[in-house]
């Protein structure tokens, strides 16, 4: 009997551990990289910023710092969006990609890369340096909107249809992306391959100014959905009987995850696995209650991405592995082991 009782650490302990890990990951990320700028250098740099070499100054303040913040926010927003959507779809396999976010972002980004000089030259002239991220953001939100329209009938949303619509839209977006890839020349091909593998390597404060607010908005509002999503675990109608406004919950969940993930994908490219693995793993540790699960997933996602990014820039230095690649490389096998252990346990 006792073995079946849910073994869970108290939430406060979990948050303390995660916060500790976040600090460690941040310290590691700030003191490691191809450029020789270790802990003592960083301390000196912080004590006497004027005395530092301009290169060291730039590496710390303009490269590693924004990279840390962007990495943490991106990891958090991907994990939280994954949690929200898994809750909405009542399915542990759901992730932001499922409602078309990444498919749409990829299509838009590849369009800019391949057609930026021809058909889309107006767009690139208009938006300049932001042509690609802006397009990716718009693309992700638009595809989600299309999936939403397909699934809505007389003001209510069929969740199963939304899921299927997302899959179909992803297939279409994937095919169009493939078509563009076919017409891409060699250099465009390399660019879009790198974009699709995701990267935090080019993070800047400007990126954060543009994408940060959306990600923060999604992160700060997500906890509002904790209780309704708990109720959703019993099904839509039960949630309604419990007094929750079902349509509102669905709308808020999709909007928050599309905005947050769209903004993240726009500046980092495609980073998979965080949205899928983190909520799933955390649910085994902190339980399924969203009041704890949402913030814990956010913290864990941030920690995970910052840690993976730190590794990505160390393992093949002075070159860097794309972070999306790194995530899947670490996350994939880890997830498999987890699944196997669960099966043996069951």
């Amino acid at each position: 009997m006792a073995t079946d009782t849910a073994k869970r650490a108290p939430a406060s302990l979990i948050f303390m551990v995660l916060a500790g890990l976040a600090v460690l990951a941040a310290l590691f990320s700030l003191t490691n990289g191809a450029y020789p700028l270790g802990t003592s250098d960083v301390v000196n740099l912080l004590l006497e910023p004027e005395a530092a070499k301009p290169a060291a100054h730039m590496v710390f303040f303009d490269v590693r710092m924004p990279r840390l913040v962007l990495g943490f926010l991106t990891g958090a927003v991907l994990a939280v969006s994954g949690t929200l959507l898994q809750g909405l779809f009542r399915n542990p396999l759901a992730d932001p990609g499922l409602i078309g976010v990444s498919g749409g972002a990829a299509l838009a980004a590849v369009s800019v890369i391949v057609l930026g000089g021809s058909w889309l030259s107006d767009w690139t002239i208009l938006t300049g340096r932001w042509a690609l991220p802006l397009a990716a953001f718009v693309g992700s939100v638009l595809t989600t909107l299309v999936a939403w329209r397909v699934a809505s009938r007389s003001g209510s949303i069929a969740v199963a249809t939304l899921l299927l619509a997302g899959i179909a839209i992803n297939a279409v977006a994937g095919a169009l992306t493939g078509l563009l890839t076919f017409y891409a020349d060699d250099s465009e091909l390399r660019s879009l391959t790198f974009w699709s593998m995701g990267s935090l390597g080019h993070a800047s404060w400007e990126d954060l100014q543009v994408a940060g607010p959306w990600m923060l908005l999604a992160l700060l509002l997500a906890p509002v959905l904790a209780k309704p999503l708990d109720a959703f675990a019993l099904g839509e109608s039960v949630a309604g009987h419990l007094g929750f406004s079902v349509q509102w919950v669905k709308r808020a969940t999709v909007v928050l995850s599309a905005l947050g993930t769209g903004a993240a994908v726009a500046v980092t490219g495609l980073i998979g696995f965080v949205g899928l693995v983190v909520p799933h793993l955390l649910r085994q540790i902190v339980g399924a209650g969203h009041r704890v699960l949402i913030p814990a997933s956010g913290l864990a996602g941030g920690v995970l991405l910052v840690a993976a990014d730190s590794l990505a820039r160390v393992v093949v230095a002075p070159a860097e592995l794309p972070i999306g690649l790194m995530m899947s490389l670490l996350g994939g096998p880890f997830f498999l082991v987890l699944l196997m252990r669960m099966r043996i346990g069951a």
């Binding site: 990289g33 191809a34 450029y35 020789p36 290169a55 590496v59 490269v63 590693r64 250099s187 390399r190 660019s191 790198f194 990267s199 390597g201 080019h202 820039r313 093949v316 230095a317 002075p318 070159a319 860097e320 794309p322």
Partner: peptide, 18 residues
């Protein structure tokens, strides 16, 4: 010689570290 990655994805820190 150390490799800094692909020329379409040059890492700032990586190049600078040399």
């Amino acid at each position: 010689l150390p490799k800094v990655g692909y020329l379409r994805a040059l890492p700032f820190e990586g190049v600078l570290s040399l």
